[in-house]
Amino acid sequence: MTQEPAIAFEGVVYGIGDLGAEFSFRREAGTVTAILGPSGAGKSTLLNLAAGFLTPDSGRIRIDGRDVTGLAPAERGISMVFQDNNLFAHLDIRTNIGIGLNPSLRLDAAAWTRVEHALERVGLAGFGKRMPATLSGGERQRVALARAFARRRPLLLLDEPFDGLGPGLAADMLALMLEICSEVGATVLMVTHDPDEARTAAGQILFIARGRIIADAPAAGFFERHDLPDLEAYLGSAAGK
């Protein structure tokens, strides 16, 4: 059986000039990839292209071998977790997870059980009736993970999801995320600016600068490389902060 890559960018071009980006890469199912690079390099552009929030000017995006370039975000089999505002502030926790299962919130009893189960899985059993504002930042991100867990989509896109949580909490959340993804069997693309996060969580690295993939390499030993001036500049400036 020929194994299709879980996600593939084939000569994807977006925008022109200094703001333009061009990406080609592929990832096998179940892998975790950290996307790193200086700010403005195009990390979020890559994620937004994969999610379908941006449409490429040319090139193809495939998910599980299926060409999704022209498909709407919801038709691509993706779950997404942002740094903030993953939850609708005026809807309670179980509703926030429930709309992940059916966007018009038409859920049967079995679906609501799945919602409860997802909450249990992230350690927030009994939180269903609470409003997002009554939860801590870390708890809200757990709910976002719970929604991704309940949705069981093959691809998970994370946009600096554990930024601003504090190092200990971020590490816990990262571990939880990895457990959940391996249970679901999801492939992960994760934008981060924390080399440590990339080292612990990711098997592979996409290093991006000026809208191009500068390096596509295994995470092991990546940060010790000295052949990439962009990487040295990035790490140097990161260490200097």
């Binding site: 919801a74 997404m80 505002n85 809807l91």
Partner: peptide, 22 residues
């Protein structure tokens, strides 16, 4: 927040449910 619209797109909320829920 812009994430609301991204989440709505990601979850596939149609015009009616987006109006009702968001």
């Amino acid at each position: 927040p812009p994430e609301y619209w991204k989440t709505a797109a990601n979850l596939g909320m149609g015009g009616l449910s987006l109006f009702r829920l968001v």
